[in-house]
Computed example of a mutant assay.
Amino acid sequence: MKKSILTLICLIAAISISQAQLFPTFKVGLKAGLGFSSLRSEGRFLNSDTKTGFQLGAWGRVGIAGFHVQPEAYYASKKVGIQTESGQDGDATFKSFDVPILLGTRIGLGPIGARIQAGPVFSFGQNEDISFTKPAEWTDYKKSSTGIIGGIGADISSFTVDLRYEHGLSNLNETGNQKIRMWTIGVGFSFL
């Protein structure tokens, strides 16, 4: 009985040590994804429909002892459908260079694992004017904004899959309270 308990404790300790990743890990890769955005606004707009945009970029991950930091850099096209108080319908496209810095942990053995991540995201506008189908009177958009992003992911050898939610913290417009909210699903490949 004592040998069985000792064997079980050794087995649990071995699994825990292998999970802890005592040696530093480093990965670099490319990613692409789809974003499903909506624009939340107080007062000026009645409605914001979710539209599909895209993301393309690169990521890196440095980890030790089961935790990691994952900075990313990608080009994003965020689309929203809007309806004004007067009932006009239109679409808006926000093009930006986004830089999230995610903190997370990975659970798994070897090349297969699951991740939980969260952190800030910094967005830098790439188009001089936000493009709107209708209405054309939208102006005064900021060149940068911040948000918070979090989600789950899976690693299968060199391939990664992520599901994330992004919530804008700063207003996009100088004169109104407008914040982006977005769900993204992305796939990536690590070459290091």
Rank of each mutant, 00 (worst) to 15 (best):
S4V: 15
I185S: 00
G176Q: 13
G29A: 06
V99W: 04
P120L: 00
T133V: 01
I112D: 04
T160W: 13
A32E: 07
F36W: 08
F23T: 12
Q88T: 08
V69P: 00
I112S: 13
D140A: 08
L8Y: 14
R164D: 04
C10T: 14
G29P: 00
V161A: 02
K2S: 12
S37M: 02
P71C: 00
P71T: 05
A154W: 12
Q55T: 08
F26D: 10
Q21A: 12
T139I: 08
I82F: 05
G153H: 09
T7W: 08
R106Y: 11
R61C: 08
D89Q: 10
E174P: 04
S145I: 13
T133P: 00
G113V: 11
D162N: 04
E42L: 06
Q83G: 11
S77Q: 13
S4W: 12
G176L: 14
I180Y: 09
K3C: 10
A154N: 12
L172N: 08
G108T: 05
T84C: 03
P135G: 00
T160S: 08
T160H: 02
C10H: 08
Q83F: 05
K78E: 12
G153K: 02
A154M: 15
N177C: 01
W183R: 11
A14H: 04
T50R: 14
P120T: 04
T139Q: 06
G35W: 07
Y74K: 07
I152D: 04
S158A: 14
G168S: 05
S144G: 00
D89E: 14
G186V: 03
I130L: 09
T184R: 05
K143F: 13
G188Y: 06
Y75M: 02
I107C: 02
A73E: 03
A32K: 06
I82M: 06
K95L: 14
N173Y: 01
A92V: 12
Y141W: 14
S48H: 05
G66T: 10
P100K: 07
R40E: 10
E137W: 15
